[in-house]
Amino acid sequence: MTTVAEVYGLGLAGDRVWLEGSRDAELPVRDWNRDHLDGDQALLDRCQGPTLDVGCGPGRLSTALLGRGVPTLGIDISRQAVALARLRGAAVLQRDVFRPLPREGGWGHALLADGNIGIGADPIRLLARCRDLLTPAGTVLLDLQGTGAHVRTDRVRLRAGDLASDWFHWSSLPTGALPAVAAAAGFGVQDVWCSAGRWQAELRTSDHWRRDPG
């Protein structure tokens, strides 16, 4: 059986990768390897201090933030993604977000872009882990899965040509489910918006959340 990281690596090298399961669809790995995607700007503009890019992939956002002078560390479990990000000039570690990380409790922002809220198939657990990594006034910036009402967790695998990965679980978080999930992890929803067709949100730790940021 081919690992998830190996099939993902084929996508980073240019192969088409498909997500198979209850909802088969092409995974836009080749897009993630670009220098910029429509909708990135809204996330990047909100990163005003040290930022941890969780599941950074080939370093699109990490590199953009470093270019703005924002201290940024990317983490990813894929060896190929880490290598590509470093070629771009990003500071990246091959690391699992649930393992010990540098500067725990000192990050101003955590990025969960490109559907990475699904890491671990438990958005509450992932956000709670991000809360531990952030400063008391830190924020999480994330992409959401449309405007549905419920968290969805699917059993999926990746396929590139004749190679298929082992099966794993992945979650998607829509706008309607966000407030309850955020609250369970110790966050309030600071803002939700749609940029270039991407639904996105900013979460702030509960002690510093205000309903009206203005």
Rank of each mutant, 00 (worst) to 15 (best):
M1I: 07
T3C: 01
V4F: 02
V4G: 00
G9M: 00
G9A: 01
A13M: 11
D15R: 13
R16D: 15
R16M: 12
V17L: 03
W18A: 10
L19G: 08
E20N: 06
E20S: 07
S22D: 15
S22Y: 06
R23K: 11
R23P: 06
D24K: 12
A25Q: 12
E26P: 11
E26A: 13
L27Y: 00
P28L: 04
R30K: 12
W32E: 07
R34P: 06
D35V: 13
D35T: 14
D35N: 10
H36R: 15
H36T: 13
D40E: 02
Q41M: 10
Q41F: 12
Q41D: 15
A42T: 09
L43Q: 07
L44P: 02
Q48S: 15
G49W: 10
P50C: 05
T51K: 05
L52D: 06
G55E: 01
C56G: 11
G59M: 02
R60Y: 02
S62E: 04
S62P: 07
S62T: 13
G67E: 12
P71L: 06
P71Q: 05
T72V: 12
I75T: 09
I75V: 12
I77D: 09
V82P: 05
V82I: 09
A83H: 12
A85Q: 00
A85T: 04
A91M: 11
V92K: 03
V92E: 00
L93I: 05
Q94R: 14
Q94H: 09
R95M: 11
V97L: 10
F98D: 09
P100L: 01
P100I: 07
E104T: 07
E104A: 05
G105H: 04
G106K: 10
G106F: 07
W107S: 01
G108F: 01
D114M: 15
G115T: 03
N116D: 09
N116V: 08
G118Q: 08
A121H: 02
D122R: 03
R125L: 13
C130H: 10
C130I: 10
R131V: 01
D132Q: 12
L133S: 01
L133Q: 01
P136L: 01
P136N: 02
G138V: 00
G138P: 00
T139P: 12
V140L: 08
V140T: 03
D143L: 09
G146E: 04
G148L: 00
H150M: 11
D154P: 06
R157F: 08
R159K: 08
R159L: 03
H169C: 13
H169A: 14
H169E: 14
W170I: 08
W170D: 05
W170G: 07
W170A: 10
S171F: 02
P174L: 06
T175Y: 05
L178Q: 08
V181P: 04
A182W: 06
A182F: 01
A185K: 04
G186N: 03
G186I: 01
Q190E: 14
C194H: 11
C194I: 13
T205L: 13
S206A: 14
H208W: 14
W209M: 04
W209S: 04
R210P: 11
G214S: 14
